[in-house]
């Protein structure tokens, strides 16, 4: 095996290559609120540091990719600068800045895999919906597709694996689940995640002044509505899917 990672002796922390023009700083292989908070705090710190040659800084669930221009810096120098920033990393305020409430239909027309997912979580469909709507989830990362939020974390019994076969197409606005997380799809997408509901909320609005609705760290609570109510929301493109946004801090 080549030396692909510089492992921190104290734990999971690793600094790895991700493309010719990128370094990935990974805080953990396992998703946890702590690892997610560290990734977001480190992302902010790297942006604030304004390191020479850095082109783009992007956080994910438990990692941060720092893109660089190989003509202006190199992997060795950047890695050293990132290690220095890691040593200075302190706890930041990770409480949500905004709370979104988003209507979701969990009825038979809109939740083709709710029963299957609930069974994998050891629940009835009704209990699964009750658990999903009771929680304030966090936007752990934006990605896969534009504006698309990874929401979590659900309790441990929601650690459902992805399907081994892709579902050919799940519609835009679908609520899907796997591995203790939920996603609202930005567009019609093939996926290995199971569809358990449907919203009329647009996370990606390319024609608007604010093309990405959600920010990493936002809180999201789902509100169960009937299939008919959802159809009404879908028919009214100005309704924002019935979602509301409350500024918390």
């Amino acid at each position: 095996m080549p030396d692909i990672a510089i492992n921190d002796s104290t734990g999971d922390l690793a600094i790895c290559p991700l493309g010719l023009d990128g370094v990935l700083v990974r805080f953990s292989r396992a998703l946890s609120p702590q690892a997610n908070g560290a990734a977001h705090a480190f992302c902010d710190a790297v942006i604030a540091a304004g390191l020479p040659g850095v082109t783009e800084v992007a956080p994910s669930l438990t990692s941060v990719r720092v893109g660089f221009d190989p003509a202006k810096t190199d992997r060795h120098n950047l890695t050293h600068a990132l290690r220095d920033l890691l040593a200075l990393l302190r706890d930041a305020d990770t409480s949500p800045r905004r709370l979104w409430r988003i209507p979701v239909a969990f009825g038979p027309d809109h939740a083709p895999q709710l029963a299957e997912a609930a069974k994998l979580a050891g629940l009835t469909p009704d209990l699964a919906v009750a658990q999903i709507t009771a929680l304030q989830l966090r936007v752990l990362a934006i990605g896969f597709a534009p504006g698309q939020p990874y929401l979590g974390m659900m309790p441990p019994h929601w650690d459902i694996p992805r399907q081994s076969e892709l579902t050919p197409k799940v519609p835009r606005g679908a609520l899907v689940t796997a591995v203790r997380q939920l996603i609202i799809f930005a567009a019609d997408t093939p996926t290995g995640w199971r569809q358990i509901g449907q919203s009329a909320f647009s996370v990606w609005r390319p024609d608007s002044d604010r093309p990405f609705a959600l920010d990493p760290g936002d809180a999201v609570q789902f509100v169960a509505v009937s299939d008919d109510t959802l159809r009404d929301l879908q028919a009214n493109p100005d309704s924002n899917g019935g979602a509301t946004c409350e500024v918390l801090r």
Binding site: L24, A58, S63
Partner: peptide
């Protein structure tokens, strides 16, 4: 394979799907 924490991707990545 089916329970890895999702992580950042770049063009050129060779990804092995569930099958």
């Amino acid at each position: 394979g089916l329970s890895i924490t999702s992580d950042l991707i770049v063009a050129g990545d060779v990804q092995l799907t569930g099958d």
